[in-house]
Amino acid sequence: MTVARDAVARGGRDWALLARQVGGLVRLELRRLLLTRRAVILGLASAVPVAIVLLVGSIPIDGQTVLERFGNRTVYETIFETVFLGAILFFGCLYVFFNLFRGEILERSLHYLLLVPLRRELVVAAKYLAAVAAVALLFAASTVFSYMLIYLPVGFSGAIEDLTAGPGGRHLVAYLGVTLLACIGYGALFTLVGMVFRNPIIPAGALYVWEMLHFLLPPALKKLSVIHYLKGMLPVPLSDGPFAVVVEPPPVAVSVLGLLGLAAVVLTVTALIIRRMEIRYTED
């Protein structure tokens, strides 16, 4: 306490103190996210792709598994794009990030955080970082486990060979990158949504429709969807169907920087909102 007050008295910024405070908040938030019912729900959701790949890789139909019949990379890409990216990552992020502040408002416990000696912008940053870490950890684990299952037909030695000498390792890194960037991008958007809206159904529903129908959008509007950049980073190109407006995928660097920039802008808006935020729980 003396250290903290001395820093204040000096009028200077004690960076070590600040790091301890932000670190403390990140750890507190991580415990809330990973050691509560929320983690169980997320864990079950992240197990879905694993279960699906296990299913299509182990149950033979007419003597062949789906992985063998259609090719393990194509099957995995389809599952990743439609199930994981198209539903689990989106709704998993919605569940966690929407409740990052809205949950505390509904539980009437947000004021405790706003009464700690930490700038409100840093409260947003710390909670967001903790949520990204927690969600990315669970979903990255899901990506790795499900990806390893595509090697069921070729066995352990085949998996090692493809991961080290073939394209398997590069693909896995790409899927992990997409997973992380999806958590960052959707996470920032849903943090803001949770700060502004009491009920997520309409804004999240609208965003979901926008994201899912992005392939029909004209090229200029495609650039306003998160999934456009994420899909551009996927290693195996898939057709979006006969009605899709086909455009060249953005370069990986543009996708990465674009999503990081989007997250930065959205979090800045969120920080501006929380700076002016009043605690009036009766209205919520």
């Binding site: 004690d14 908040l25 700690v116």
Partner: peptide
């Protein structure tokens, strides 16, 4: 407000917010 972080014990409640003051 008669509300608290969900699931917290009395000790955790006081202790965790003290850590946010930057104390060891």
């Amino acid at each position: 407000y008669d509300s608290f972080p969900r699931g917290a014990t009395g000790w955790q409640f006081v202790f965790s917010y003290l850590l946010l003051h930057g104390l060891d």
